[in-house]
Design a protein around this nucleic acid. Structure first.
Lengths: 144, 144
DNA sequence: ATTTCTGCAAAGAGTTTGCATCCTA
DNA sequence: TAGGATGCAAACTCTTTGCAGAAAT
């Protein structure tokens, strides 16, 4: 875990990005939490460590990480964006009751992309999929 | 086209919803445009017809149509929500250059849902997928 | 006559921006 | 020390809300 933070920071450094304590903290939090937090959750979680850090800094850095390809922005309906530092190919399963997002792997849906290209004339560069349902915890609570 | 507007309005009427001119216009626009407009696009498009209509009315009615199951809200990244009155099962192919959204049908991805259920313990109720790429028009412009 | 809907304006969330100051490299 | 990063506050966009007046049934 810590290693991948180091690795990511190295990558940034090489491309001329300065490693500030805030930057380090935000990236570490994202990589270690694996929780798909919102910008505000990141901000509040790091408040004890950085009482004077502003939300703008969180947004600035998230934007940079996204441009550097280290973080993905998830926008599913409702309200604020969530951020995901796991850039391996995977989908998200979202609990409609508690909002939890779990990762889920599935062999690529290339066939879908190909058919979309054929039907629409688009040149397809990727796709995004989310599954919705109720997580085990919420189902358990309901059954009691 | 017009028939489906009538049908939708009938459906609303039966469930005790009043058919106001604004409501009629918003729904017609959505059903006929097939363009996945934003709330503001709807608002501005209907301004000539309803110079005094407020944005709040557009949002109020969209919300009601969504609750009635006649309209889907699409939230893909960037900024404002888009609204889709086509409730048949289909996916969206989004041009990353001009923002155009095209519909695209594909046989259901039940296998994915089943595997997600097995892997995560969720009870899956549905999914959402979007494909990204470049539309024929934008590709054409680039090639020139 | 009721009850719902509209329009207005103001409030609210999330996000971005401008600028002076700070600090990493 | 020089240029990028931070922090602050204000601005901006999208969306929601409260309420008085208007309109549909």
């Amino acid at each position: 875990m810590t290693t991948s933070v180091q690795h990511a920071l190295e990558q940034l450094k090489v491309s001329g990005v300065r490693i500030t304590p805030q930057r380090h903290a935000i990236l570490s939090y994202l990589l270690e939490s694996m929780e798909h937090p919102t910008a505000d959750e990141i901000y509040r979680s790091l408040e004890p460590q950085f009482p004077s850090m502003s939300v703008a800094t969180v947004y600035n850095n998230l934007k940079m990480f996204i441009e550097a390809g280290m973080v993905h922005e998830l926008t599913y309906g409702d309200n604020s964006s969530r951020f995901d530092a796991n850039i391996t190919d995977h989908y998200h399963v979202i609990c409609q009751q508690c909002g939890k997002i779990e990762d889920f792997s599935y062999p690529s849906l290339e066939a879908v992309e190909q058919q979309a290209a054929r039907h629409t004339g688009f040149q397809i560069s990727g796709h995004r999929m989310e599954l919705y349902g109720t997580c085990a915890d919420c189902r358990g609570l309901n059954q009691q």
